[in-house]
Design a protein around this nucleic acid. Structure first.
Lengths: 244, 244
DNA sequence: CGACCGTTTGAGTGCGGTCAAAAGAAGTGG
DNA sequence: CCACTTCTTTTGACCGCACTCAAACGGTCG
């Protein structure tokens, strides 16, 4: 029985019983590997599966008519991705590997089984999905109403906080595999302007960079200019059904 | 027993049985009224309830440090709003009435009951939530990667399509109660620029306006410049548990 | 009729985009 | 190990979309 990466994540919020854990472990029985740069899923392809990220970084994105790309979300270890498969038979967004990644796919019928036999897990998945939704709305406000510098700051801070969720000993430095082009696609900017703003953040003493690692030098000030709110700290799943 | 507005919506996708319908009707037992302009829910307030919009237009939004506002989503009749209450005890977004509205609140414990006793409904709510998520990502791409004119076009088209879901006889004209300031807050623009772009859309023969009604003159061309994809048409909830 | 709110219009500005080129980095194959 | 390609970062000059500020106009409701 493989240990469950996603189950571990859920247990951050609530304890799970044996049968629930076993059901979660079954979701990660199969594993696939993708090399950096590979497309894991393409928009409009049939996509009846959800994916659990077991390791590595990936990003979901859409391509527009004019060829430009919008990165919708960065996905890190333990994330559940492709949740739109719950509503659509064909993918609404593409998914690519930003580093080498291991993913565990599971079918929509497995989700049905969770709703039927493991309401506590189904409810927890709903909780996680709503937390993800809040992240999306934060990003919407970031793109709609803040400056280039703020948007980049928000991306960096949020990434650090999310990495810390899995790895509490993580200090202020972390590997950051995105190119400036990719940062631009995530923040709605051009790579040229991303470059200028990143250098400005360095000059302001807010961050530091070396090879592909990033250090958050002044987390408080960076959070301020990013308008950052740590949603993860406020998650409250107290309403979910008790362990069966 | 009040008829269920939300249940009606769910039946667009899948048939429901008596017990499921009864459970849904119970969600709309209580009703509150809000006048145009009133704040229904304020960010950071305790918010243990979900809301079903029974009639009228409302909008969820966040306010930023500098006083600017980002409208996250327009909510129409039959929408389930405040779903972030599933993950957070305090509201992550505010909600205001754009017209007079009637809303039916129900508690998080009611959701627990659905997950325990009505897995089909719980799963359908998950489906709807994922469809909403797709709408949010569409908006994210719209704000991040398209021009002012596109963003406004996307807002108008999407609104028309959503109104048609409830009212298939709706032609190309509909009441549109948003001020240009509000359109700007939804699209990440200033009201001044919204005005200029709306007039441009009129001049291009794409839309027409009179008092507070809006007519989509050339739906195809407007959809094109909006990069619009009709997600609602593609919803596929075939995986949800069968009626119990 | 006057107050208020929303729309419209104009003039000027600036943030972020575009285009282009050079300098580094990182693979890749001989 | 080096020559070569390719990708990424950096820099500069210029441009234009959308913002700002300001004022006039129009509708609506006391």
């Amino acid at each position: 029985l493989t240990a469950s990466c996603f189950g571990e994540r859920l247990e951050h919020y609530l304890p799970l019983t044996g049968p629930d854990k076993a059901a979660l472990a079954r979701l990660e029985e199969h594993q696939r590997l993708y090399r950096r740069g590979m497309v894991i899923r393409r928009e409009n392809e049939r996509a009846p599966e959800f994916l659990i990220i077991r390791s590595g970084w990936s990003a979901s994105y859409v391509l527009l008519q004019d060829g430009s790309r919008q990165i919708l979300r960065l996905h890190l270890t333990g994330d559940l991705v492709g949740t739109s498969s719950a509503a659509f038979a064909h993918a609404t967004e593409s998914l690519m590997a930003l580093t080498d990644v291991r993913v565990c796919p599971f079918d929509r019928t497995a989700l049905r089984h969770l709703f039927e036999a493991h309401p506590r897990i189904a409810a927890l998945i709903f909780v996680i999905a709503q937390a993800e939704r809040a992240s999306l709305t934060d990003r919407l406000a970031s793109l709609g109403r803040t400056s280039a510098k703020s948007r980049i700051a928000a991306l960096l801070i949020d990434t650090l906080i999310r990495l810390r969720l899995r790895n509490p000993e993580l200090g202020d430095a972390f590997p950051f595999p995105l190119t400036q082009e990719e940062i631009g696609d995530a923040t709605g900017l051009t790579s040229v302007h991303v470059n200028r703003m990143m250098r400005a953040l360095v000059e302001d003493g807010l961050i530091a960079r070396s090879n592909s690692h990033l250090t958050i030098v002044d987390e408080r000030r960076l959070s301020e200019i990013a308008n950052y709110v740590n949603r993860h700290a406020a998650i409250d799943p107290s309403w979910v059904p008790p362990a069966s």
